[in-house]
Every structure is written in structure tokens, then in C-alpha cells.
């Protein structure tokens, strides 16, 4: 029971991270719910084996990104337990800036158009992770992370000019 309680608390504390990852990797609302569920399940499955060698959030990012990557291979969805209300945009109050919603969609689209490696790295960069942390989570070298971020910057700049 203690483990379960701790797990629930951990998920609740980091639900935003999982939400943002699903938003970037999933193509539709249903897909997003399915991925969210998958990530929680994978985290639960390995929760006991987490030995604290890395920070808890580092481990969460790693499992969540790996699950999202595996999700790209998936053609069949699992039955979802999440409700239709599952959407940050729907949770936003009606008076929330419409412009913000549009800006967010443009941003998600641009990230979704990046390749799988860039997508993972940029997501972590936007989360405010340092090159060292990104390298630790993804397994790419520090230099490689820097190079890829630079490349994405250029790509986005070129897209804007088009």
C-alpha cells in the first residue's frame, strides 16, 4: 500500500511532464490518452526497480520518452480508462486567451514535425534541462546534444523564413 501511495504521489507531482510528452508524441486526443496510460503503466511496472541511481524526474523523463518512442510503432490502441475531459486545453477556462491556444498548437505541430531524436532532445531543452541532463536522459553525448539543438534552431529559423 505504501508503494502504491508513493507511486500515486509521484505521478500526481509529475503529471504535467507526462502530459506535455504525450501532447508532442501523439497525433490525436485518443492517441494522447492511450500514450498517457501507457506511460503510467510503464512507470508503475518498473517503479520497484528504480534504485535512485539517478534523480526521480530523470528516470520519469527517460521512461516516458522511451514509451513515447515505442508508441510511434504502435498501430493498435488499448482501451482507454481516461475520460473525455482529458485535455489541458479543455481544462483551460473559456476566457483563457484564444491566441495562446493557437500558439500552442503551432508549437506542438512544429515539434511533431521534427525527427524522433530531435523531438526528444528539444522537449527536454524546452523543459529547461541542461545539456548534461539531456545527455543523461537520452544517452547522447553532451556535444551531440548541443549540435542537435543548434540544428533544430536553424531548422526552425529556416521554416519561419519560408
Amino acid at each position: 500500500m505504501q508503494t502504491e501511495d508513493y507511486f500515486v504521489k509521484t505521478i500526481r507531482k509529475n503529471e504535467g511532464i507526462i502530459y506535455k510528452i504525450t501532447k508532442v508524441y501523439a497525433s490525436s486526443r485518443e492517441d494522447q490518452k492511450d500514450l498517457y496510460q501507457d506511460i503510467i503503466f510503464q512507470l508503475w511496472r518498473s517503479f520497484d526497480s528504480f534504485k535512485g541511481k539517478s534523480k526521480l524526474t530523470t528516470w520519469i523523463y527517460r521512461v516516458a520518452l522511451n514509451t513515447a518512442l515505442a508508441h510511434l510503432q504502435k498501430s493498435k490502441r488499448s482501451p482507454t480508462l481516461l475520460t473525455d475531459e482529458f485535455s489541458f486545453e479543455m481544462l483551460m477556462s473559456p476566457e483563457e486567451d484564444k491566441n495562446l491556444k493557437e500558439q500552442l498548437e503551432i508549437m506542438y505541430d512544429q515539434i511533431r514535425n521534427l525527427n524522433a531524436i530531435e523531438k526528444g532532445i528539444i522537449l527536454l531543452y524546452l523543459e529547461g534541462k541542461s545539456h548534461d541532463e539531456i545527455a543523461e536522459i537520452t544517452g547522447y553525448s553532451n556535444t551531440n546534444v548541443g549540435t542537435r539543438i543548434g540544428r533544430v534552431k536553424q531548422k526552425l529559423k529556416n521554416n519561419k523564413l519560408k
Binding site: 518498473s46 522511451n66 515505442a70 537520452t138
Partner: peptide, 8 residues
């Protein structure tokens, strides 16, 4: 998915 890195 739980013990590998993204790269692997």
C-alpha cells in the same frame, strides 16, 4: 523501455 536510454 524502463532501463534503456532513448538512443539505445
Amino acid at each position: 523501455l524502463t532501463n534503456s536510454t532513448y538512443k539505445k
